[in-house]
Amino acid sequence: MKLDELTKGVFKQNPIFYLMLGLCPVLAVSTRVDNALGMGLCVFFVLVGSNVIISIFKHRIPSQVRIPCFIVVIASFVTIVDLLMHGYAPELHERLGIYLPLIVVNCIILGRAEAFASRKSVFHSFLDGVGMSIGFMLGIVGIAICREALSTGKIAIFDCTIVPTFTQSPSVMMTLPPGAFLTIGIIMALINYKNIRKEGR
């Protein structure tokens, strides 16, 4: 039962491919695998942190002002992440740029606060946050792997080569906006294909 709270975010209700939430950073930052990992970690911290805090104070927040309260909590976490990144990972901070502060308007986080953390217990909200952010990270890193491999012909995380160069003529388009839309479209079609086959059986 508890395991279910954790795994539903990863597969059954994957925030990117099933709930279609938080797409903006996914497409913008997935040009490189290390950027995607960085974004995934930031979302993890903010989502878990705000889920826990909100579920602790859920009975003290009047329902009329709950959205502004959630927003303040989320925005505080985002600012803390932003400051920490600036101090300890300046290069990554630079590359994530405007998309780091924009985590605050990422629909996943406010969505989870409203739909889950404000109703369930602290522990369940924690698990939900962890599951959802792992699901988010899988999605964004998956897309980044496709795009980096196709656009540079290799995969390197923080200057450390994971997959050596396999083609001399990579497609630069994959690093540009059209490549982002194309990748996610095809991945979603593959998921649909799998689901349709499962139903057919």
């Binding site: 906006p177 982002a180 839309f181 194309l182 996610i184 479209g185 095809i186 979603m188 079609a189 649909n192």
Partner: peptide, 9 residues
Amino acid sequence: LPIAFVSAA
């Protein structure tokens, strides 16, 4: 949706 993404591309 998938075809919408491809059109957006």
